[in-house]
Simulated assay, not measured.
Amino acid sequence: MNIAVADARIPSADELVERARALIPMLRERADEVEKARCVPKETIDAFKQAGFFKILQPKRWGGWEMTPDVFWRVLMELGRGCGSSAWNMMILGVHQWEFGLMDPRAGDDVWAKDNTVLVASSYAPFGTVTKVEGGYVLNGTWGTSSGTDHGDWAFIGVWLKDEQGRPINRLALLVPRSDYEFLDDWFVFGLAGTGSKSLVLKNVFVPEHRAHSMIDYHLSDGADTYQFPFGMAFFGSVSAVMVGFAQGAIDIFIEQIKVRENINGCPQAALDHYAKDRLGNAVVRVRSARARILQVAAEAASYIARRELVPVDNRVHYTLDFARVGRECEEAVLLLYKALSARGVFLSNPMQRVLRDTLVGANHITQNADHNAEALGGYLLGQPLPPLMYGLPKA
């Protein structure tokens, strides 16, 4: 048995951020190896466990610290500076602990009764089919892009629950053990290659009712404050936070290289080049603005939750775009810096090209879709209905 006892003293948010920052050199050193292996090594996941990062959002019932999402986000902002794939795995495998605060406690007991360090992966996109049966659900199909699944002993599977006419009426996450699915190694990509985001194949898998929860039915519960945030905020914000880490990593690399680089265009020192300085400043302001917006959203939402109020839908529509814009702004920041490196940036020996590729792929994540979310917000402000099954269940 490996039932860890909750730490006698829960570290502060600042302490956890410092632990994350201390891991950046190791993550940078291993980043090439991670990409080539197409998988984050167990040693890195163990380092994250040792630092306590998987306890941040985990309920106290199972030895966690029940901290708020912004603490987790600040940690991801640091880890992303070191290795995109490793930080992405930490984001995916670490956000699911929060999810158990929304569920029947029996689900958490199923996973952590013997070992509360067990990790859970996911594939939320509703690729396969679900059938409602007595006592639960039956899953069939192939679910793609399950990041970090090599390290998960369970996985959340996303589905549309439909009525008898085939119309979606709810979006569910169903928890299944590793013994109930097979891996399909199809993650051959040009960025975030080390996330190991394989597909999961399920055949007639029964999931009991207590291992299911709605991803869109937002309501207050009796749980700790952290579990009163909307599901979309917790997950969207986590992706955006790790994107900030990627872009800050690009800034770190750029400064290191430009400080010592000699140009061949007549400027004896690259750090004196007006073009390089302009691009750096514009990249920094984009990343700082994205970071500040993420944390401001967390603070605003927390003010409602502290009063045991739901975060209003008026706010949540804005927050979704606030998060989605982060990917685009971080993408812009990294491209600014990459272009300023000229030919030096194209060599595989230069980590900037990997950060660029990781950022481009991360910015294509559904949570970073600024276009459709801008349309949704604009339409809502003009009195038009919100996209169905995104901000709540259909009205009866």
Rank of each mutant, 00 (worst) to 15 (best):
I264Y: 12
P312M: 07
R291I: 01
P312E: 03
R328L: 14
V297P: 00
R307I: 01
A302H: 08
A343F: 13
S342I: 13
R316A: 03
G281I: 02
L336P: 09
D322F: 05
E329G: 02
I305Y: 03
Q296R: 14
A271G: 00
R307G: 05
L321Q: 10
V284A: 14
E262V: 14
Y275N: 14
Q269E: 10
N265K: 07
A333W: 06
I305M: 09
G281K: 11
R307W: 00
V284E: 15
V334G: 02
Q269W: 10
H318L: 11
A292N: 14
I294D: 05
D278M: 10
A301Y: 04
L336Y: 12
H274L: 06
E329C: 00
K277Y: 00
R308F: 01
T320S: 10
Y319T: 03
L337G: 03
E309L: 08
V334F: 02
A299C: 04
E331I: 02
N315F: 14
S303Q: 11
A271C: 06
L336E: 07
E309H: 06
R291A: 14
I264F: 12
D273K: 08
K277D: 03
V287A: 07
A276I: 01
V260I: 12
D322H: 07
H274T: 01
L310F: 06
N282V: 04
E332Y: 11
A299W: 02
Y338F: 15
R307A: 12
Y275C: 10
P268K: 08
K259Q: 15
E300V: 12
L295D: 08
V311F: 00
A340I: 03
A276M: 10
E329L: 06
K259Y: 06
E331P: 05
I305E: 10
R307N: 11
D273T: 05
N282E: 13
C330A: 10
A324D: 09
L336M: 11
D314N: 10
L341N: 10
N265I: 04
E332R: 11
I305S: 09
R286V: 03
L295A: 02
E332V: 11
E331M: 12
G266C: 00
L295H: 10
G281E: 05
A292G: 11
A301I: 00
Y275M: 11
L336W: 07
L337F: 08
E329S: 05
A324H: 03
R288P: 01
P268G: 07
R288H: 14
A299N: 09
V287N: 08
R261A: 15
L335N: 10
L337W: 04
V326I: 13
I264H: 08
A271T: 01
R316E: 09
